[in-house]
């Protein structure tokens, strides 16, 4: 049996990945993954906010008044998000212009409030720290894969450096314009979920209800 600290950290990477298993935080995964660099910066911001929010909420978890706990959690999270936004504007101005409102929208990223409510409220500080890091990195690797695939297939570049020479520059590669549009992120995340659930069948959801009058397929009888 692995140490609980390590287990808390490893679990959200694939086994309980916030994007592929819980399908949370997909909004930002669509919006900021057009290039690898925006995906990386966005992930860094989310990891910082998620970890710090988990730690500070876990610190006061035993004193938390039950009826206003969500308000207190959101206050903490939004303060951290504003700080992250200010830091980006000061040290990565071009990036913060590209990410625009999506940094501010980290507040409404379900992963962060979800971890605060379901983990940090019930677990000690050190475990909450590991949970924050683990979920943050689980989010990161999905965004990096999606951002990398989209930038590579959409423009032939990675982090702005040419990897596949496009036909327009005298190479052979024909960029797929679809990859630059948000729906392509859906397709890639969908494929990732398919691969992960094929490897780990336990993740597939059970059917929630049965149709009362099942439609019989034509030609089946």
């Amino acid at each position: 049996m692995k140490h609980p600290m390590i287990r808390t950290f490893i679990n959200p990477l694939i086994g309980e990945n916030p994007i592929t298993l819980q399908v949370l935080g997909v909004c930002s995964a669509l919006a900021v993954t057009k290039t690898l660099s925006t995906a990386l910066i966005m992930s860094a911001a989310v990891v910082c906010v998620l970890t710090l929010a988990n730690v500070s909420i876990s610190l006061i978890r035993n004193q938390m008044p039950k009826n206003v706990r969500l308000i207190i959690q959101i206050t903490i999270i939004s303060s951290l998000v504003i700080v992250a936004d200010q830091v980006l504007k000061a040290y990565a101005y071009g990036m913060s212009k590209q990410l625009s409102v999506f940094v501010g929208l980290i507040v409404s990223n379900c992963i962060i409030l979800g971890r605060a409510e379901s983990f940090a409220m019930k677990n000690p500080v050190r475990l909450s720290l590991m949970d924050g890091l683990g979920n943050g990195l689980g989010y990161t690797w999905i965004l990096v894969v999606v951002g990398g695939v989209r930038e590579l297939l959409g423009t032939g570049k990675l982090l702005g450096t040419t990897v596949l020479r496009t036909g327009a520059d005298g190479g052979w590669f024909e960029p797929a314009a679809l990859m630059l549009l948000p729906p392509s992120a859906f397709f890639i995340i969908g494929l990732l979920i398919w691969v992960i659930r094929t490897l780990k069948p336990g993740q597939a959801e059970t059917e929630e209800f049965q149709a009362r009058f099942p439609v019989e397929r034509k030609g089946k009888r």
Binding site: I60, P65, N67, I72, T75, S79, I82, V83
Partner: peptide, 21 residues
Amino acid sequence: KTLILTLTVAFMGAVLVTASA
């Protein structure tokens, strides 16, 4: 206690945001 805790959290959040800005 609810009031004190809420105010404290709000105050600390405000300090953090103001300082960074």
